[in-house]
Simulated assay, not measured.
Amino acid sequence: MISFSVKTHKEGTRYKKHHLFALSRGYNTGRPLKEPCPNCFVILMESEDDCQKMYFLLDGLWRRQVFRMQLIGSVIPYIRVHEFTKTIIAFWKQIHENEDRVKRLMDAFNSLERLEKHNAEFMRLLSKYRDMAYVKVFDLDKVNLFGR
């Protein structure tokens, strides 16, 4: 069984244990984060392996919108720490039962994440190339737009 604790993140706090963050408010509640932001929980764990499994679990629960069913509040929906923790524990048992399959999926998703980052960088470079091509074609100094 995993040993972890969930707390509300306080701005400026540094954590010595392995940790990750999850949004605690809004319709993206439960979304795992590598860096803290306002309105998030911190999940503290004993090992880096557990931290990676927890990220996988939270990402799956967030994508399946499991936490949305537990949101309370009418203006800014949020989840209580206790409900968040209870949900993680319930689904952690499923991960533990399918550990081999989960490991393969984690490896595949890590590869997909690297590919997404590579593609995002490629798209950024293509956009920059397009902008430079327009600069070469449209010389704004030669066109008198303002009658000066």
Rank of each mutant, 00 (worst) to 15 (best):
L44R: 02
D131H: 13
D131F: 12
T13N: 03
P36W: 02
C51P: 03
S3Y: 04
M45I: 05
M106D: 00
R80T: 12
I43E: 03
Y27C: 06
L61A: 11
K142S: 14
K136E: 14
R63W: 06
C51V: 14
R25G: 01
K117Y: 08
F4I: 05
I43G: 04
F21L: 04
V137H: 10
G30V: 14
E116G: 00
K16N: 15
G30I: 14
R31Q: 10
K7T: 10
K86V: 14
N28L: 09
Q52G: 07
A120G: 07
I89H: 08
E46P: 03
H96G: 07
I2P: 10
V6N: 00
R64Y: 07
D49K: 10
D139F: 09
K93N: 08
E116R: 14
R68W: 05
K53P: 05
M132Q: 12
I76H: 00
L58Q: 01
E46S: 12
D49G: 05
E97Q: 15
E35V: 05
A90N: 15
F56T: 04
R25I: 10
S74F: 00
M69S: 14
L71I: 13
F4W: 05
Y129L: 11
L20I: 05
E113L: 07
R31K: 15
P38T: 10
D131E: 15
I88E: 02
H96M: 11
R114C: 08
Y15D: 00
R148H: 09
R25Y: 15
L61V: 06
K34R: 15
D100R: 10
F41K: 02
L140R: 07
M1Q: 12
F4C: 05
F109D: 05
I2S: 07
Q65D: 11
V81T: 11
I76W: 08
N144W: 01
M54E: 07
L71A: 09
P32G: 03
F4R: 05
L33R: 09
S5L: 09
A133W: 02
S111A: 10
W92E: 09
N119G: 01
K10G: 04
V66H: 00
R25M: 13
R64P: 08
E11P: 00
D131S: 08
S47V: 08
S111L: 15
E97F: 14
S74C: 13
I79H: 01
S47C: 03
F84V: 02
L20R: 02
F138G: 06
G26A: 11
Q52V: 09
I76C: 10
K16A: 15
F4P: 03
G147C: 10
